[in-house]
Design a protein around this nucleic acid. Structure first.
Length: 884
DNA sequence: TCCGTCACG
DNA sequence: ACGTACGTGACGGAG
């Protein structure tokens, strides 16, 4: 018995598989039907043929030698669908894990390689089996060469031998070449002779054998039309024959021996099968590979085990990933030292153990390893803790909180328990249920040991359970770049910003505070005098009573609970009595005192002398970052009294603050995505955009635009971004509604592209249910289907505004990641410390300021490519006051 | 805990 | 005819 070699026409099989099966897709959104069909056919063939040697031949992209002969060879082929194209590299990967060699050539096609190989095999005494869906291979069949032809579907195949060809066609295999020369082949765009199909072709070949013989005996042809066609297309017929002839002397760099079947990498193969959800293929593997590595059933959800730190480290070293969470004894940011670590090494039960500093340092090599993946939930907390130990985390690849936020940015609670309930319809307790709330809140360390371990077992098991589901959805929604290139690396950036903080001098706040207090006392005295009695000025209710009942000022606006006393209302009462001015001033100063002097002082960390604000990545529905405890994104700047607060925020020792802000980023984004010609032109010319808008909307020469007109135009520009209404604009500018309406219609007439974009975006959102930013960040807008007009109108404004605000957020996030990365990689001492939506602030060492400025400008201005240039303005100073 | 108010982009 | 500009967070007062 001769040894067999199985030679597979990979390209043919791949296409056949794709069209034979429905468009299968994994839960991660990857198309797999061609891969699955291909591997199934390959496995079936191997089982049937039992070969000792195997190889797969592929066609390469691009022209082959046949195109030299005939320019239009395969000219009618349509481009491969992308759903198929994407599956290509995966098949190659699987073949690699199977240790099956791939043969391909830039000049020859798969069938030429297969033909050559089968000839060599024959000479060396092997039997060749050629697996293909292409009947052209029949010409290769002989005593030692058989074709395994795929039939319908992916399971059935026919063995084609010399005998079966004789029987079915009554010609010899080699005569198929001549047959093809006559018939042509529409799929390869080989012309052949017109009027000759399989039937006539076969008849002629049976009678004459070769084309040469046929043409020497044309007089014997009886059909007049047939004879004429043969005569007129002789050259074409011989060219077709040549095109259809499989080349059998392709120079090959491999020997048969190189193609010997080898051991497969079963563990990697099983992993791939699981990843692509090929369960039936998985079952064909030896039993120990059947089970998924991680299968956490409801029962196992709370299971954990106890190990020593050294055992744990050993365990992790041999695994590819682990999930972890540090547990602290209270408010996590106040006590940077964890009391416990919860850690689940891949495919093992979670371990929850007490740790000391030494234990954590033992884990340093593991956290810093680029080989072991780390995953978690709200990793920012944990990365900050690691930073406290001088540990620089590497290769963290998944955060379930961030992932869930990307998939649904409008939720308010991303506790692991909530997410578990959403995806698995089961959970345990959220933090509030576990620890209580308000006064009764306890620390993790106050929990019973079993309860603590149970919770964190659930926590880490759930992180693993969520991983594939989340990543699948992220891939499916086209958010891979957003997740892997932006949000994930941003976690470390925000961690560093929090960890570093901003130097804040309490004594400056004290000074401002004393000054404010004096002024407030004076104002208070004056207000009581005007009111004729003492009352709580900070109580809108009492103030309302004084103003509108006792002093009888006209009521401008009411709230749900009574009279409105907002600044907007008081502004309208200005000039009607001094008390109004006093109250406005009092309000302003008291806000400064309570929020920005007293509030901030409390949050200066005594040991660092810095404020470590929290930057939250999962709060806003548009993709912006938010800042809390304190909010450093709303430090006063618009009035001089408020701005003074900024004097308390300082650069570090021997450093300067470099403040870089994007100029008009939202309007630039709007210009870019709406492609409005006039707005694009304005930015191209580097015009003052508000002034330009004023000129257009108010119909005056650019040079004639007054400051008032410019500021009104500025309000219109902002209004447009927010999804303007005439009423809203009229309120904002304190002008009549019809005038505001006029402004808007002039605006939209001039910026027609914006008008169209607004309409298209809303329509698009209604159809899809969501809108997207430039990085495909998504926001669902269920409000668009509301019956209530207000809610629906809100949905429309959001549909229009979110892509603008969100894309601007995408852009600055990209810039943050790159600035952080470059500062880190080049070992600068300077640190990124603040982000204020369109502005980045770096605490830059004085030796580095010039480099930092250049670096920031370069990165920020080139963060993305838009239809307009991004422009950055910069200031340097020793305090936040001086950088404006 | 909610509301009104006001600080920011 | 509807009610009225997008996104946040913190504070003090009132229930």
């Amino acid at each position: 018995m001769k040894e067999r070699i199985l030679i597979i026409d990979g390209s043919s099989l791949f296409f056949r598989a794709f069209y034979a099966l429905p468009l299968l897709k994994t839960k991660r959104g990857i198309y797999t039907n061609a891969i699955y069909g291909f591997i199934m056919m390959l496995e079936n063939a191997i089982e049937k043929v039992n070969p000792s040697y195997v190889t797969v031949c592929f066609d390469m992209k691009g022209k082959t030698f046949r195109n030299e002969l005939y320019e239009d060879y395969k000219g009618t082929r349509q481009t491969t669908p992308t759903e198929l194209e994407q599956q290509w590299p995966i098949v190659r990967d699987i073949l690699d894990k199977m240790n099956i060699k791939i043969l391909e050539s830039p000049i020859y096609e798969a069938d030429d390689i297969a033909g050559t190989l089968s000839l060599i095999a024959e000479k060396e005494g092997f039997e060749s089996i050629l697996l293909t869906g292409d009947k052209d291979y029949f010409q290769l069949v002989d005593e030692n060469t058989k074709v395994l032809l795929t039939r319908k579907g992916i399971t059935e195949m026919d063995i084609i031998s010399v005998e079966s060809i004789e029987e079915e066609y009554n010609i010899t295999p080699i005569e198929f070449i001549d047959l093809k020369g006559l018939m042509g082949d529409s799929s390869d765009n080989i012309p052949g002779v017109p009027g000759i199909g399989e039937k006539t072709g076969l008849k002629l070949i049976r009678e004459f054998g070769t084309m040469e013989n046929l043409y020497s005996n044309l007089d014997k042809i009886t059909g007049k039309k047939l004879k004429e066609n043969l005569e007129n297309n002789k050259t074409q017929a011989f060219m077709s024959k040549k095109l259809g002839t499989i080349v059998r002397n392709v120079p090959l760099e491999v020997t048969i021996e190189d193609l010997k079947m080898k051991e497969r990498n079963l563990s990697e193969l099983s992993e791939m099968y699981r990843e692509y959800e090929f369960n039936s293929l998985l079952e064909r593997l030896p039993e120990e590979y059947h089970k998924a590595d991680i299968e956490i059933t409801s029962k196992a959800l709370f299971e954990y085990e106890d190990r020593s730190i050294d055992e744990l480290i050993k365990l992790i070293e041999n695994e590819k990933s682990f999930a972890f969470k540090f547990i602290t004894d209270g408010k996590i940011y106040e006590s940077i030292k964890p009391t416990h670590i919860a850690l689940k090494a891949y495919n093992n039960k979670p371990v929850i153990m007490e740790v000391n500093d030494n234990d954590i340092l033992k884990l340093k090599p593991i956290f810093e390893s680029s080989k072991i993946e780390k995953i978690g939930h709200n990793l920012k907390e944990d990365i900050i803790i690691l930073m406290g130990y001088g540990i620089v985390i590497d290769k963290y690849t998944y955060d379930s909180k961030i992932a869930e936020y990307l998939l649904n940015s409008t939720d308010s609670n991303y506790d692991i328990n909530n997410i578990s309930n959403i995806y698995f319809n089961e959970g345990y307790k959220d933090l509030e249920e576990l620890l209580g709330k308000g006064k009764k809140k306890v620390a993790f360390t106050d929990l019973d040991e079993v309860e603590l371990k149970k919770y964190f077992a659930f926590f880490l098991n759930t992180v693993y359970k969520l991983k594939d589901i989340h990543l699948g959805k992220i891939a499916e929604q086209g958010m891979d770049e957003l997740f892997y290139e932006v949000e994930l690396p941003l976690i470390e950036v925000l961690s560093s910003m929090e960890f570093t903080g901003i130097r804040t001098r309490k004594s400056i706040l004290d000074e401002i505070g004393f000054d404010l207090e004096d002024k407030l006392k004076e104002l208070e005295k004056n207000i009581y005098l005007e009111a004729g009695e003492e009352f709580n000025i900070n109580s809108p209710k009492k103030l309302g009573f004084i103003l509108f009942e006792k002093l009888n000022y006209p009521v401008i606006k009411k709230t749900k609970t009574g009279y409105s006393t907002s600044a907007e209302v008081l502004e309208k009462l200005r000039g009607k009595g001094e008390i109004i001015d006093y109250v406005l001033e009092y309000r302003k100063l008291s806000k400064l005192k309570s929020t920005y002097v007293d509030g901030l002082k409390e949050l200066v960390n005594d040991s660092t002398g810095r404020i470590h604000s929290h930057f939250n990545q999962t709060v806003t529905s548009t993709g912006r970052i938010s800042s809390t405890e304190p909010n450093l994104q709303n430090i006063p700047i618009r009035t001089e009294e408020g701005r003074l607060i900024r004097k308390a925020f300082l650069a570090s020792e021997n450093s300067l603050l470099v403040d870089a802000d994007y100029s008009q980023i939202e309007l630039r984004v709007l210009a870019s995505i709406s492609k409005d010609k006039n707005m694009l032109k304005a930015f191209e010319n580097d015009d003052d955009i508000h002034k330009r808008t004023a000129a257009e909307v108010f119909g005056v020469e650019f040079e004639e635009v007054t400051p008032l007109l410019r500021s009104r135009a500025k309000a219109v520009n902002f209004g447009i971004v927010y999804g303007i209404s005439d009423y809203g604009l009229s309120q904002n500018l304190n002008i009549p509604r019809n005038v505001a309406g006029e402004y808007i219609s002039n605006y939209l007439k001039h910026y027609e592209g914006i008008k169209n974009y607004m309409e298209e975006e809303v329509e698009n959102a209604r159809k899809k249910g969501y809108v997207e930013t430039i990085l495909k960040r998504r926001r669902y807008i269920p409000e668009l289907n509301a019956k209530n007009y207000n809610i629906r109108a809100f949905g429309e404004r959001v549909a229009f505004n979110t892509p603008i605000q969100g894309s601007a957020a995408d852009i600055i996030k990209i810039a943050m990641v790159r600035v952080y990365r470059e500062l880190k990689e080049k070992n600068y001492k300077s640190k990124l410390i603040l982000q204020i939506h369109d502005e980045l602030i770096v605490d830059a060492h004085e030796d580095e300021t010039e480099e930092v400025k250049a670096l920031m400008r370069r990165i920020m201005e080139n963060a993305v490519k838009l239809e307009v240039k991004l422009k950055v303005d910069m200031e340097v100073g020793s305090s936040l006051y001086d950088t404006k």
